[in-house]
C-alpha cells in the first residue's frame, strides 16, 4: 500500500514536502492509524503524529485523509484510494508533520463556558432530569474535541479568532439544552453579534466530516431558534 505523507519539521525544513512510504502485507480491516504506526515503527521514527486510544474515543488523531478530515484510528485503509494522501488538519498552524497547534481551537472551546452553571443551592442528591430532558443532550455531549469539524469549516478558516467554529458551538448547545443549567439567557446573549455564531453559513462540512456522526449545523440551528424565540 502506498502513502504520501505531509512532512514538515521547522528545525530543518524551509517548507513542507510530501514523503512517500510503501507498506507490504497490509491486512484487510487495517485502520490508517495502525498503518502509520507500522511506518513509524518499521521505517521512520521521525514521522510524527498524535495518537492514544486507537478506537475513536480520545480524539487525538484527527488528520486530513485523501482530502477529508477524519480520525486515523477509525478510518479503514481498505476504502482509501492509493496513494493515501495524509496531511495535517487544515486551517491551523502546523507544529510538525501531522501535528497541528490546537490552541486557537481550545480557546474557542473555553470561550463558550463549557461547564454546567447552577446558581441554586445544590441538593444532597442528584439534580433531577427526566429521560426526555436527558435525551436533548444526545448528539451533543459525545464530542471528542478532535477538531475535524472546525478545521473543515471555511468560516473558521477565515475567522478562527472571531467565529467560534462548529465544535465550540456544539458545546454551547450542549449546555443551552441541559435542563439543569441556569445560565441560559447569558449563554444566548454571549453568542450575539455578527461573528461568534452567525458566521456559520450552513456549508455543512462539519456534518460531513464528524467522525462521531454528530451534527454541529443542526446544533447551531437549535441555538438560532432559541435566540429567535427569546427575542420575540
Amino acid at each position: 500500500m502506498k502513502f504520501k505523507i505531509y512532512r514538515y519539521n521547522p528545525e530543518k525544513d524551509v517548507r513542507p514536502y510530501e514523503q512517500e512510504y510503501q507498506l507490504d502485507d497490509v491486512q484487510p480491516g487495517t485502520m490508517l492509524l495502525a498503518a502509520l504506526l507500522r511506518i513509524k515503527d518499521e521505517q521512520d521514527d521521525t514521522l510524527s503524529f498524535r495518537r492514544s486510544c486507537g478506537e475513536g474515543v480520545c480524539g487525538s488523531d484527527g488528520m486530513n485523509i485523501n482530502g477529508v478530515n477524519g480520525l486515523a484510528c477509525i478510518t479503514a485503509t481498505d476504502d482509501l484510494k492509493q496513494p493515501v494522501v495524509v496531511k495535517p488538519l487544515p486551517g491551523l498552524p502546523v507544529i510538525r508533520d501531522l501535528i497541528i497547534d490546537m490552541d486557537q481551537f481550545y480557546k474557542q472551546y473555553r470561550a463558550v463556558k463549557p461547564y454546567l452553571v447552577v446558581n441554586d443551592p445544590m441538593p444532597e442528591v442528584e439534580l433531577p432530569q427526566t429521560p426526555e430532558q436527558r435525551e436533548q443532550l444526545d448528539g451533543l455531549y459525545e464530542c471528542v474535541l478532535c477538531a475535524c469539524c472546525s478545521t473543515a469549516c471555511p468560516s473558521f478558516w477565515w475567522n478562527p479568532d472571531k467565529f467560534l467554529g462548529p465544535a465550540a458551538l456544539l458545546q454551547a448547545s450542549r449546555f443551552i439544552e441541559d435542563s439543569r443549567d441556569q445560565d441560559f439567557e447569558k449563554r444566548l446573549e454571549d453568542l450575539e453579534g455578527p461573528f461568534k455564531l452567525f458566521r456559520c453559513h450552513t456549508i455543512m462540512n462539519c456534518v460531513h466530516v464528524c467522525p462521531k456522526g454528530l451534527n454541529p449545523t443542526k446544533a447551531i440551528g437549535r441555538i438560532k431558534a432559541k435566540m429567535v424565540t427569546r427575542s420575540l
Binding site: 461547564y115 454546567l116 442528591v125 442528584e126 427526566t130 436527558r134 441541559d178
Partner: peptide, 20 residues
Amino acid sequence: AVYELEHFGVPFSRLDNGKI
C-alpha cells in the same frame, strides 16, 4: 462522589423518576 459528578454536569442516563 457520584452526586458531585452529577453536579459538575456529567450527563448520566436517567430513570423515569428523574434519578440516575
